[in-house]
C-alpha cells in the first residue's frame, strides 16, 4: 500500500513556493480561501488513493500548530 510521501519531493522548492504565493497575489481573503479549496480538491483528485488522502488529512491536522483534531 502506498503511503503519504513526506520526504522532499518537489524540485526547486523556492520556485514552487513563489508560484504558490504569486497565484494568491492581489486576492481578497475570501478569494484566496476559495482558491485554496479548489486547489485542495484538484490535488486530492490527482492523488486519488484514499489511504494516502486519509494520511494527508491526519498529517495536516496533527502538525504542530494544528493539533486540535
Amino acid at each position: 500500500m502506498a503511503h503519504l510521501n513526506t520526504s522532499a519531493n518537489i524540485a526547486g522548492p523556492d520556485d514552487f513556493y513563489a508560484e504558490l504565493l504569486a497565484t494568491h497575489e492581489g486576492l481578497s481573503k475570501a478569494e484566496s480561501d476559495a482558491l485554496n479549496a479548489r486547489l485542495i480538491l484538484l490535488l486530492a483528485n490527482h492523488i486519488g488513493d484514499r489511504a494516502v488522502l486519509t494520511e494527508a488529512l491526519a498529517a495536516a491536522a496533527h502538525a504542530p500548530g494544528g493539533d486540535k483534531a
Binding site: 476559495a34 485554496n36 479549496a37 479548489r38 485542495i40 484538484l42 483528485n45
Partner: peptide, 22 residues
Amino acid sequence: VSRQFRDAVLDLSETYEFARPF
C-alpha cells in the same frame, strides 16, 4: 469552510469532470 468547499466543487464541476461526483 464547508461552504467554501461546496462552492469550490461547484466551480470546478463546470470545467472538470472529476469534481462532478462530489
